[in-house]
């Protein structure tokens, strides 16, 4: 297994956590100041994911865009593929906060949801 340094992003301290991993197994070396750091470092080493926020085109809306996010974190290597789908999408106004814009994007089980209300023009 290789040693790897992971900067924890759970809280603003940003501990540098040293781990050993080969992508399948995980062993903590040191550097975390609290327990949340271990969970983060493990998922970062074995299955890194991120929340994704972007925007989708709106037809006949008061604004040309509605902001959106994924309802769950996306595997890191799928981020640009999901972005492509988000860019293709278009939705008619009015849009409601929480409304699903794309269901089960790319069969990931993740939905793209609106984070804003957009009124009709």
């Amino acid at each position: 297994m290789n040693e790897k340094e992971i900067t924890c992003i759970v809280c603003p301290i940003g501990c540098k956590i040293l781990v050993k991993t080969d992508g399948k197994e995980f062993e903590l070396v040191d550097g975390n100041k609290c327990k949340s750091g271990i969970d983060y470092a493990r998922s970062e080493a074995l299955d890194p994911r991120r929340m994704l926020a972007s925007s989708v085109l709106v037809k006949n809306g008061l604004w040309p865009l509605v902001s959106v996010k994924t309802n769950k974190p996306v595997p890191k290597d799928k981020i640009f593929k999901v972005m492509k789908e988000i860019k293709k999408a278009e939705i008619d106004a009015p849009v409601k906060l929480g409304q699903i814009i794309i269901k089960n994007v790319l069969n990931t089980g993740i939905d793209i949801i609106a984070t804003k209300n957009i009124e009709k023009l």
Binding site: T7, C8, I9, C11, G14
Partner: peptide
């Protein structure tokens, strides 16, 4: 913040 250096740049 360090977390933004990681999630936005790295």
């Amino acid at each position: 913040l360090p977390r933004n250096v990681v999630q936005c740049l790295d």
